[in-house]
């Protein structure tokens, strides 16, 4: 067994629902496939879950290491879960030189060459990897989804500088903030497209109020570092959008049309983060 090169953290849910061909329920099999796809020589996998989920995870394979999550997600988001920052810290604690996060509904169809390439590149920079959406598990080709990062790898030293406080798995915006936080610190980020990072397409699991609430978390992180945003050369529109969101993201109760403004401005801000990440865009064959 080679030494651990990559420690990958996630939070496997007790169950998963996904639409399959003909409307059949495909979530359980997809969840199983995802779990089986992550471990590989040199890749150590951790799942971080709240204590109340431990019984339902008893049947996980031995290749998945279980960790108990820090509390607070249920209180913050109304359902049990794990903090993203907690998971990343658990990965760093393994001592692996490369650490990462993966969403639990991602299947990694990565051969040894691709894994080696990812691990080598992630020693130099944060790799924010897009997923490929497939309609069913056996689909060979699918559309790349550019507006999210479902697998993020980075040097362990970089992970120790990233602040993910307040973001939980399954809640939007954590993947944008992890990219933006690195860029604001002057750390290298690369947007990666790799067809081996697969996701069984489903309707969005989040709703607009939850999306805006998570955006407030991001804006709370951004507020004290607004000056650093200007150094990224985003342009006047992006900076104005950021300023607008900083002003109104936590003032939704002030009436019409603040929520709508947050939605529109937040969408544009997200696009700007994607554009920033894609300044260094790579494809892994």
């Amino acid at each position: 067994m080679p030494a651990t090169e990559v420690a990958l953290a996630t939070s496997i849910p007790p169950g998963m629902k996904r639409p399959g061909p003909g409307g059949a329920e495909a979530g359980a099999i997809w969840r199983q496939d995802c779990i089986a796809s992550w471990p590989a020589p040199g890749w150590r996998i951790l799942t971080v879950n709240p204590a109340e989920e431990s019984a339902s995870l008893a049947n996980l394979p031995e290749t998945i290491e279980r960790r108990t999550a820090e509390p607070g997600v249920a209180e913050a988001y109304g359902r049990p879960g794990a903090w993203v920052g907690d998971a990343l810290r658990q990965a760093v604690a393994t001592g692996a030189p490369v650490v990462g996060l993966v969403n639990a509904d991602i299947r990694l169809d990565l051969d040894a060459t691709r894994r080696a390439a990812l691990a080598a590149e992630a020693r130099q920079a944060m790799l924010a990897c897009n997923r490929m959406d497939v309609q069913h598990a056996a689909q060979a080709e699918g559309a790349a989804y550019r507006y999210g990062y479902d697998l993020v790898l980075m040097p362990a030293a970089m992970a120790q500088r990233i602040d993910l406080t307040g973001f939980a798995f399954g809640v939007p915006w954590w993947d944008y903030w992890i990219v933006l936080d690195a860029l604001l610190r002057g750390l290298p980020v690369r947007a990666v497209r790799c067809d081996g990072i697969r996701h069984l397409a489903h309707k969005a699991a989040w709703n607009q109020p939850g999306w805006r609430r998570a955006l407030r978390v991001l804006m709370a992180h951004l507020a004290p570092r607004r000056a650093a945003l200007g150094a990224l050369g985003l342009g006047p529109v992006a900076e104005a959008v950021a300023d607008l969101l900083l002003a109104i993201a936590s003032r939704e109760e002030e009436g019409y049309p603040v929520a709508e403004m947050i939605t529109v401005a937040g969408t544009r801000f997200g696009l700007e983060v994607v554009r920033l990440a894609e300044r260094e865009a790579l494809r892994l064959d």
Binding site: T113, R114, A117, R146, A191, R193, E278, A281, L282, D285
Partner: peptide
């Protein structure tokens, strides 16, 4: 500089100017 199986890409998103 990425090498081997890596390819540099330039993505032009038409939502922008």
């Amino acid at each position: 500089m990425a090498t081997g199986p890596w390819r540099r890409r330039a993505v032009h998103d038409l939502v922008f100017a």
